[in-house]
Design a binder for these strands. Structure first.
Lengths: 216, 216, 216, 216
DNA sequence: GATGAATGAGTGTTCATTCAT
DNA sequence: TATGAATGAACACTCATTCAT
């Protein structure tokens, strides 16, 4: 099964308008979701906050869940876009990996409310929509996998396939941690400290591996 | 502010009975929450699944949220209990840390549904109840902090205070990862593989630090 | 497929209470349906008219359609009960058939609003519920079929099987006509006149058939 | 009160265009009504099925009810037209009456969906529009009244004024029966059988009356 | 202490109709 | 004339909670 982007049908025909209106709706929804969560936010609140009538809202989406999907989709697109703006994905070096992690953590920090929302509410998506969002998460992971692969290929890291995958997962999760454990982490570290320390913890072991030999 | 365990009032006087009944309610609730989530589960369903009338349910709790709090509390207690059964918290050595991580990951795996529920639904707790649950999470973190501290004190690890804290957080989160990313991780690794690899990634860097000098 | 009476589930356990409450709800619903039709009547109106809150209404039914089904069911039961009270179904004679038709027309006249409602709204029942109501209609038809059969057996009428069936249908429909064409019929005839004339038109031909020979 | 045809106002001036467009709308509406009923059919669906925008639909009608009126009107016109095509209304004989009934039943059979729609949905017309439709029904009845009158005048039937009226009603209703009881009748009879048997039952009594004397 | 019938505010969603373009 | 985006009143239905028995 190859998943593309899930199409959300609309009663409105003008594609440009759909894009525009949905953007406004998603923006309002994110703010409400981060305040009260998906379930505690009503469609009426979303309509009002985005400046439309409830009827108009439903011209652009079919159900409340569609909004959640659009929110998740939009957040992933936002993160990926910012990532691509700031890091070249063609290179492969330790320095580049460090840079990428730092950039990613920065993006997560900038969009912390959005990331947190998506992180906590995505589970409310139906069994139909969830795979599309998980796919996005895998795409994000793949960005770091590729980067690590290239760095391994350059001889700057010594990792097998499975280790690359897991390290990529860890990087992603350490970024998300910054949002979902912020109640604790923010008290202890600035973003810069957090970033520096996590880079060390994430990479220090694998970096020096060649010096000290493999573990089982 | 020092938080103790939050007291949930009951209309029933008999403490023993409260304990017993609540245990049954929580058990039923966990099963329902892990199937449908907190918001999609009704109090009627919880009452029915635990074998009580809706009226009786409300003799033992004040609100639906009380159940969520009791569920979270119960899950933490379960995890901590299992942890204490299997690891001595007085020692301090690399081997002990590895053992503790493995035990913790095993507990998380055994209780993966429960951990996932708590992880995803705790955010629905009111501003009043949330701190009590976050406190539990900090207590969990503290278990690993202490272990790391002792190991540092033994001279087997070289970490400053802040690194200990962050490493403890990472251990916790890597355990939770096993539940909230299981849609991906389970495809790639068995629990044993996951545990071994994460131990390596978590500890390898800090382990060999003395051999190679500090990073910035 | 043998259809019994369709069971409508209720959240309330007390069977007696269900019977009582549903009776009140059906009564209110009939009045509203005959005024505004099924689709133009809201569940809140039904709740209010029967003296319950909307929540209570839904303790006794699952959906608005359930009310329509209960209404139809109740009307059939009412008609059949009144019929059985007044005519013996064991006999078989021309006089008895005339009597039965007159009684049936009287019952229809007494319950004209109800009959009209059922007649016009039954089509709004779902494909699941409709067969149960059609079955009731066939049972009604069967009452007259049996009566005619017995009369034929007595030698007082000369009709083949198919003619008995059709005549029974015609009797039923002529009764219903009195409701759904009342805007016209009531201007022309009293119930007594209508009954007398229809009996003549329905039976005169078949009555005298023996005197005049068969038609093709 | 003399009712003519009810005028449905339109924002469009061109009468020819109104006729044309409304024809297309009515055609689409009939198909939708017979599938889902009037209340379950939306104006959007009607607009789409007739190939217009919702805006254009409302250029030709004022309200959804106008469509229902036009549909009813159109069905009556259709039935009447087909009737006039096939039977001469100037004659008066038993044979002609039989022929007319057969033709009418045939027309009803051909347009059974339409007849059923009109029959079941006309009640949803407002108190303002209903009389216009009932008038059409009376006109239909009048066709058979006239036919019977002429046959009585020819001495082929012996019926008083009131009996003529009621018999005409019965003929109409027996035609409609073929649609609204088709779930049962179609299983028992072909159209030809049904027609033949109903003609017998309708006319046999009155036919032979002269031979046998009056009933009370 | 236990029960379950009663409540009604609140929810997602629909749809006939309007009106600016 | 034709369009279709916008509207919001209205609807069926849910569910946490209460309280009389």
């Amino acid at each position: 099964m190859v998943l593309g982007r899930k199409e959300v049908p609309s009663l409105v025909k003008d594609e440009k308008l759909i894009e525009k209106r949905r953007g406004e709706m998603v923006k309002a929804a994110v703010n409400l979701f981060k305040e009260n969560g998906f379930h505690r936010t009503t469609t009426r609140e979303i309509a009002k906050a985005s400046g439309f009538s409830i009827g108009t809202l439903y011209e652009y989406i079919r159900s409340k869940e569609d909004i959640l999907y659009l929110v998740c989709d939009s957040i992933y697109e936002g993160v990926k876009e910012k990532l691509h703006e700031q890091i070249s994905l063609a290179e492969g070096s330790i320095e580049h990996v460090k840079k990428a992690i730092a950039v990613y953590f920065n993006v997560v920090d900038e969009m912390q409310d959005e990331v947190l929302v998506m992180y906590q509410e995505a589970k409310s998506l139906s069994r139909e929509a969830l795979p599309y969002v998980l796919k996005k998460e895998l795409e994000m992971t793949a960005i770091f996998e590729d980067l690590l692969h290239r760095t391994v290929a350059q001889g700057e890291l010594e990792l097998n396939e499975e280790e690359v995958k897991l390290l990529a997962h860890n990087i992603l999760v350490h970024g998300q941690m910054w949002t979902f454990r912020r109640w604790s982490l923010r008290k202890e570290y600035t973003l810069e400290e957090y970033t520096q320390m996590q880079i060390n913890l994430l990479l220090y072991g694998v970096l020096n591996r060649s010096l000290t030999g493999k573990t089982s």
